[in-house]
Every structure is written in structure tokens, then in C-alpha cells.
Design a protein around this nucleic acid. Structure first.
Length: 564
RNA sequence: UUCGGGAUGGUGUAAUCGGUAGCACAGCAGACUCUGACUCUGCUAGUCUAGGUUCGAGUCCUAGUCCCGAAACCA
């Protein structure tokens, strides 16, 4: 057996940098990363990129990656989100070091560091209101002005800070600020706020604290406390890096390195937790796990596999260029994975009755169908065949368009895993609507028999009418009609670009009987239609509900669209 | 106007010290097919601009152009 070619190691600027650092003996060659979501919303496909990067790099270099809740703002955070985040990361296929970390568990140490900065004269208590601070900060092109409280002595600041902590001052009345440079061209260094007063209970620390650290201050310290070596974050934090470094330079607690990469953007959807929350709250979707949402919980419910998402993240690569990815790539990796694992079934979404006029009314045959041609181990199953069948409405045309090789009067098609039939006529109602199609079958053409070995233009799917299961099937399309619904180019409100046809509910769909006992989440292929799964939330034994994960590639649809 | 980033086919992403611009998706054409799927074959298409250095520039130098981000007691 020849050795398979060595998989080319993923190469990108992050991995190159880590490789260089290790070669240089930085951090003793260790690699420790972290994925630090704020528990104020559900994780989406954009987070998956960060997760794959942080956990992936740690794995590849023999290091670890911590899952850390960045929970320094008690007013927006909730344990519901903590659980959802943990579930999503686990589902994606990553393990973290024994337990979840929380920035909030460092509150005491973070506070001690603040006292240290105060003692060194690097931080001061400021009595300006939020609005005054904002005004004094200056603008992008004009320097700010120094706070009148900037000159307070370390002793006075220390006393004030301790009293802030004790709750002696009203909410919003004072802040602790770093003393850096109010004229700095980087606005993040114009005496940023370290602590604000909030008499809000925290979901983990309760009412123990009434002052809470800001992200810019808490984050580098949390990283340092955990011995993080490479702190990966998205581009918008690039000019926070000098501040990240400033805190660590002024505190002797170690110095992780912050490195920025471009966040993931996907066309025709949104990637902002705030806006996703608005979609949920305003009822444009049924919840965070509405299968049209880009959240991981929604994608899971819709039938995405973790492997497909991981492959997608690997395919998109990582750089510092703000890119917009086409949905086509996501769907490609999805189909690629589903094709390998999905069990095949026959299901008719828009039924049209077919009567096999030369087939005995009381006869039933069991047809054998392969469960997954990509995986012989998946075996086969039986499907009942009878005189009356359902076929797909689209598989019949009374007047076939050019290139159509499905069923039409006088032509033959093969019924998947059954017989070859020829259309002999149609039945219409008083209004001229097509009600049923009449066919004759060729008894010699049963699958497996020699008579089946002749060329027929098309093979179509079918379900025995009297054995069919009824089901609801939900077809999803992109949530927005604009590739960047929230961009300026889209002209304002993303709500204007909601796709009115993002959900199509089909009732009275006809399924082959073995679909009765499929577990939610099991990847299925309805042959010739797409990949589907049982809806984990709404499907019941007596009222089956399926989600369409993604369609099959449909070359004919493209041709037909052009022709007509 | 300030600061920080970034520009390679339609979309993304590679290219060791300066040495044949590669890969994936999409698109097009064909082969195969009991899924118009899968698979396979072929094709189309790219270095922001202008100068410069060099035998040779996506890569180095100079000057521009365009795009993104930044002024929460959010993260």
C-alpha cells in the first residue's frame, strides 16, 4: 500500500506566527488560546470560525484552548446563553480543559490590579458623567481635554476606589480611568474607563460587586491569568491592542500577544448578535434556533453537520481582509458531507396521482432500495409498490419543454427501484386541471431483473399512495434578499430586505413508510430533492415535520429556468 | 481631516530568499448515471494605478487611488 500524500498543513498568517514564536522559544514553546464569548446571545457561524481557529491551533500545536465566558457586563448576560454556548462548542466537536472559565471569577484579582495601577499613579477616579467624559474625549481629529480629576493623589484615588467598591456612590457617578494621554491619536488611549458603577446583580457573582471592569481592561488580565500565549480576536480590536499591551506592561502578570484576524461574513445573512436578537424579539423568526438563522443552534436544527461547518471554516481560510463569503461554498461543504452520510428515502413533496392501469388493484410488492450508495454498510430497505402511486408534480409535463426527459404522454420513465412505466393518458377535472396520470408498467422491468437493463431517459421517485405517510415539510431559503442586508449599500434598515419567501411550508407531503421512525437530526436524503431531517422541536409521531437542510444540486432547474 | 488595517479571476484563499500566479467554490462544455445527484474530464477568468530597481517584481522602492475599522460607563 502506498503512503497517502501528507496532508498539507493549513497555512495562514496565524499559524505561521505561532510557528515562529515556538521556534523562538517564546512562552517556553507553549500554545494556549481561548475562545471568549460574552454570554449575551447565541453563537453563530461567524463564531464557528473563531472556535475552529482557537481550538484548532491549540490542538495542532499540542496546546489547550480555554472556553471563557467574557461576562463583565451584568446587564446583558444570562446563564441561558452560557449553556447554549457550551452546547454549541461541544456539538462542533471541541473539548476544553475540564471546565468553563469565567472572566467574572477573576473580579477580585482584576480589582487588585486596579489598586496597583492607582498606587502607581496610572489610574484615577473621575467624577465626570458619561456624557462629560464622552465630550471631553475629543474627536478623531481633535485632541481630548483632561479631566479635572486627573490630578488626584494615589491616596485619594485609592480611598475613592475602595468606596466605589463598597457602594458609597450612586450608579454612574464615578469611574476609574487609566491615566494615559488625552491627546493620543488612538482614541482608545484617551484615559479609557476601567471600572463603572452598576448596582446590577451579576448572574454568577450576585450582588457581591457594584463595580464592573470594562472589556479593554478585563480582557488582557483574564488572558494573562490563564497563561494565554496567543489571544486571537477580530479586526475591530486592532487599535485596542496598544491598550491591551499598556495594561500588561504596567502590571507584572505576564504578557499574552493579541493577534487580529478578519471576522467571517456570509452573504444574505446577518452576523451581529444584536440584530439577530432583534429578529427574534420582533418575531421575524420563531427563535434563535429558527432554521433560517445563522446561529449554530439553528443550523443544527436545520440539519447541518458539525463536520460541514468545520470544513467550511477550513475552506474560507483566515486573513486580515474583510471578506464576504458566498452561500454556495457553505452549501457545497454541506452537501459534500451529507452525501457521504445521509440515508436515502423517497418522498413526494408536491404529489400527483399515478394509476398503473395494468397493475392489479389488490397487488402489493416489496421493492428493495439501497440506503446509501456511498456507503454499502448502510444496507437496504423495502418499499411497498402498488397500483396507485404519488409522483412529484414537477416530474410530469403534459407538454414537455425542450430537454425535459421525465414523464409525459407516451414517454417512459423508470420508477426508482421498481418498474419502468409508460404514460398512456391523463385525467382532468371539469376545470381542466390535471387530476391523475395513467400509466402501464412493464412487468419485465422490475429492478434487479434483466428486463430492467435498458436505457430510460429518467428515473423518478414515487410513493405508494395507500402506504404513504403524510408529513409537513418546511423549505427554507435565505433570510434576506440583499447580500449585505445591514450595509449602507442596502440603504438603512435590514428589515426592509427580509425575504418574504424564506419559509415555505408544504403540507400533505407523501413519504415512504420507513420514514416513520427516523430520529430527529438524522441526516436524510429525499432522492432527487435534497437533504432533510426530522425537526427536533415540532415533529411528532402523528404529525411528522421535516426540515429541508439544503437542496441537491439541480442542473435541470437551471436549464429549465433559462428556457422559460 | 487623525489613527489603525487592507487591496491577487465572479467569491474566497495560496505563492520559500525576487524566479512558470496555484487551490477551492461559482460559471461553461462534455463523460458517466436506476438520484438531471455523486464522480470524472476539459475550459473560462486574476496580481488597484503610475513610475522606479532588476536579466526577472504579486513580492523590493517612491508616489497615488480605493476599501474597511475606530470617538459606549458594550464586548
Amino acid at each position: 500500500m502506498s503512503t497517502p500524500p501528507a496532508p498539507t498543513p493549513p497555512s495562514d498568517f496565524l499559524r505561521e506566527l505561532v510557528t515562529r514564536d515556538r521556534a523562538a522559544g517564546k512562552h517556553g514553546g507553549r500554545v494556549v488560546t481561548r475562545f471568549p464569548p460574552e454570554p449575551n446571545g447565541y453563537l453563530h457561524i461567524g463564531h464557528a470560525k473563531a472556535i475552529c481557529l482557537n481550538f484548532g491551533i491549540a490542538q495542532e500545536f499540542g496546546g489547550v484552548c480555554n472556553l471563557r465566558m467574557d461576562d463583565t457586563n451584568p446587564t446583558t448576560e444570562d446563564p441561558e446563553y452560557v449553556h447554549a454556548i457550551e452546547e454549541d462548542v461541544r456539538w462542533l466537536g471541541f473539548q476544553w480543559a475540564g471546565r468553563t472559565y469565567y472572566a467574572s471569577e477573576y473580579f477580585e484579582r482584576i480589582y487588585e490590579c486596579a489598586e496597583q495601577l492607582v498606587r502607581k499613579g496610572k489610574a484615577y477616579v473621575c467624577d465626570l458623567s458619561a456624557e462629560e467624559v464622552s465630550r471631553a474625549r475629543g474627536t478623531l481629529v481633535t485632541p481630548g481635554t483632561e479631566s479635572p480629576f486627573r490630578g488626584r493623589s494615589p491616596a485619594e484615588n485609592l480611598d475613592l476606589l475602595r468606596r466605589m467598591r463598597k457602594g458609597e456612590f450612586p450608579e454612574g457617578s464615578r469611574t476609574l480611568r487609566a491615566r494615559i494621554d488625552m491627546a493620543h491619536p488612538n482614541m482608545n488611549l484617551r484615559d479609557p474607563v476601567l471600572y463603572r458603577i452598576r448596582f446590577a446583580p451579576h448572574y454568577r457573582t450576585g450582588s457581591e460587586w457594584c463595580i464592573y471592569p470594562m472589556y479593554d481592561y478585563a480582557h488582557p488580565l483574564s488572558d494573562a491569568f490563564e497563561g494565554i500565549t496567543h489571544s486571537l480576536c477580530t479586526l475591530e480590536f486592532e487599535h485596542h491592542r496598544p491598550l491591551y499591551d499598556w495594561f500588561l506592561d504596567n502590571l507584572d502578570i505576564g504578557h499574552p500577544q493579541q493577534i487580529e484576524f478578519a471576522r467571517l461574513n456570509l452573504a444574505y445573512t446577518l452576523m451581529s448578535k444584536r440584530r439577530l436578537l432583534e429578529l427574534v424579539n420582533e418575531g421575524h423568526v420563531t427563535g434563535w434556533d429558527d432554521p433560517r438563522m445563522p446561529t449554530l443552534s439553528a443550523m443544527r436544527r436545520r440539519g447541518y453537520t458539525p463536520r460541514a461547518i468545520r470544513n467550511f471554516c477550513a475552506e474560507v481560510g483566515v486573513a486580515k481582509f474583510n471578506s464576504l463569503h458566498e452561500i454556495a461554498l457553505l452549501e457545497h461543504v454541506l452537501r459534500d458531507d451529507l452525501n457521504r452520510v445521509a440515508l436515502r428515502f423517497l418522498a413526494v413533496l408536491r404529489p400527483l396521482k399515478v394509476v398503473i392501469t395494468n397493475y392489479a388493484a389488490d397487488q402489493v410488492e416489496e421493492m428493495t432500495a439501497i440506503n446509501n450508495p456511498e456507503d454499502p454498510a448502510a444496507g437496504s430497505r423495502q418499499m411497498p409498490f402498488a397500483r396507485e402511486l404519488w409522483i412529484e408534480r414537477d416530474d410530469f409535463a403534459e407538454v414537455p419543454p425542450k430537454g425535459f426527459h421525465r414523464l409525459s404522454p407516451g414517454t417512459e420513465v423508470r420508477l426508482r427501484a421498481a418498474y419502468i412505466v409508460r404514460c398512456t393518458g391523463v385525467v382532468k377535472d371539469a376545470q381542466g386541471n390535471l387530476v391523475e396520470v395513467h400509466c402501464t408498467y412493464d412487468p419485465e422491468s422490475r429492478s434487479g431483473l434483466p428486463g430492467a437493463n435498458r436505457k430510460v431517459k429518467a428515473t423518478i421517485h414515487w410513493v405508494s399512495a395507500r402506504h404513504a405517510l403524510d408529513a409537513e415539510v418546511r423549505l427554507y431559503d435565505q433570510l434576506f434578499t440583499h447580500p449585505e442586508p445591514a450595509s449602507d449599500a442596502a440603504g438603512g434598515d435590514f428589515r426592509r430586505h427580509l425575504n418574504p419567501r424564506s419559509l415555505e411550508v408544504l403540507r400533505g407531503c407523501k413519504l415512504e413508510p420507513s420514514l416513520a421512525s427516523v430520529a430527529p437530526g438524522t441526516p436524510l436524503q429525499f432522492e432527487r430533492l435534497g437533504y432533510f431531517c426530522v425537526d427536533s422541536r415540532d415533529s411528532r409521531k402523528e404529525a411528522l415535520v421535516f426540515n429541508r437542510t439544503v437542496t441537491l444540486r439541480d442542473t435541470w432547474a437551471k436549464v429549465a429556468a433559462k428556457g422559460g
